[in-house]
Design a protein around this nucleic acid. Sequence first.
DNA 1: AGAATGACCTCTC
DNA 2: CGAGAGGCCATTC
Length: 140
Amino acid sequence: MARSDEASAFFFAVYSAVQEIPHGKVTSYAHIARLVGTPQRPRQVGVCLKHLPTDAGARYNNTNVPWQRVINAKGVISPRSQPSGARNQAEALEAEGVTVGRSAMGELTVDFAEHGWFPRSLPSEGSEAEDSEEDSEDGA
DNA sequence: AGAATGACCTCTC
DNA sequence: CGAGAGGCCATTC
């Protein structure tokens, strides 16, 4: 529980933004932080999810908030503090139909070009990105 | 009370 | 292009 109302407001903003994530899509903490109006505080977003209420009676809880769809900007699921947590998140993502890959270090990775949900173009992705999106189809 | 950590990101060398 | 340091705020010891 947040000690300050403003703090709780930040939490609610984050949870609400996470709920905005469509099914089978994933986004990064930075994006959520930006949506809530605090692009300089991506860590707090993680803290929000970390302290996500497990109470089914709470307005926001790990059952109503798809926290699993939230990963880091590298497209990799943070190992959190326990490998089980990250793996559990990967399992949930796969259950959503998200393709979860694995890095050489065994880190779970998600392809943003596949399930990347970005209502607003990120400066890192391409500030002047034109309409030519989703064109990364290699075609093999 | 203060100090340390953390589900992070961005800039700079 | 790769590695490093800084910064932010809440939770916890």
